[in-house]
Structures are given as structure tokens and as C-alpha cells.
């Protein structure tokens, strides 16, 4: 009870909550079975598609599997975060 009250007030989190959150994150990776090779493949495909529309800095492209708060705000969901620096947008991609 007290523990729940404290955590609601945003004070020190109980160690079991820390454990649960860490577990959830590690299991996202375990279950997805994401190897560096897998991420490289995804990266390659994304570059291929985007290249049709814009010029990007392929060297600086960063893609990773991470967690984010779910829409409902009651938990953590896996998310694929890609940071793709754009150099220029190709003509074909511009609106007329």
C-alpha cells in the first residue's frame, strides 16, 4: 500500500518495478531475436526506398530497436527508431 502510494507520488521506485521494467526491455530484444545483421538488413532496405525520394547521409543513418511508452501510457512497447539525416529532397519528391 505504502509502496504503491510512494511510487504514485513519483518518489523512490520499488526494486521490483525496476526489475520488471528491465526484464520487459531485455525480453523485447530476446523475443525479437534482433541481431546486428538483422538491423543492417533493415537499414539497407530503408536506404533503398528513401533513396528514390531524397538524398540522405547514409553514413550518419542510425537505426535501433528501443522501447517507448505505449499510447495508453500504462506500459512499454518496442519501437524501431531511425534517425535519417536528409541532404536534399529530389525533384520527384517535391509537390508541384
Amino acid at each position: 500500500m505504502l509502496q504503491q502510494l510512494l511510487s504514485k507520488l513519483g518518489r523512490k521506485r520499488s526494486s521490483k518495478d525496476v526489475a520488471k521494467e528491465r526484464l520487459k526491455l531485455v525480453l523485447i530484444h530476446d523475443r525479437a531475436n534482433v541481431s546486428p545483421q538483422f538491423l543492417e538488413m533493415v537499414k539497407g532496405e530503408i536506404i533503398k526506398v528513401i533513396r528514390n525520394y531524397m538524398e540522405i547521409d547514409e553514413e550518419a543513418l542510425d537505426i535501433q530497436l528501443t522501447k517507448t511508452a505505449s499510447e495508453e501510457g500504462d506500459g512499454v512497447v518496442p519501437a524501431l527508431i531511425a534517425n535519417i539525416p536528409i541532404k536534399s529532397v529530389k525533384n520527384a519528391g517535391r509537390s508541384f
Binding site: 509502496q3 520499488s14 526484464l23
Partner: peptide, 16 residues
């Protein structure tokens, strides 16, 4: 320990 919030409860584990 579960009561004190220092051990995951059965519900926590089933949830995961």
C-alpha cells in the same frame, strides 16, 4: 519481500 515491493509478485511474472 513481495509485500515490500522488493520481489516481483506472481502477477508481475505472469504478466511478463
Amino acid at each position: 519481500m513481495v509485500r515490500k515491493g522488493d520481489m516481483m509478485s506472481i502477477e508481475d511474472i505472469i504478466d511478463i
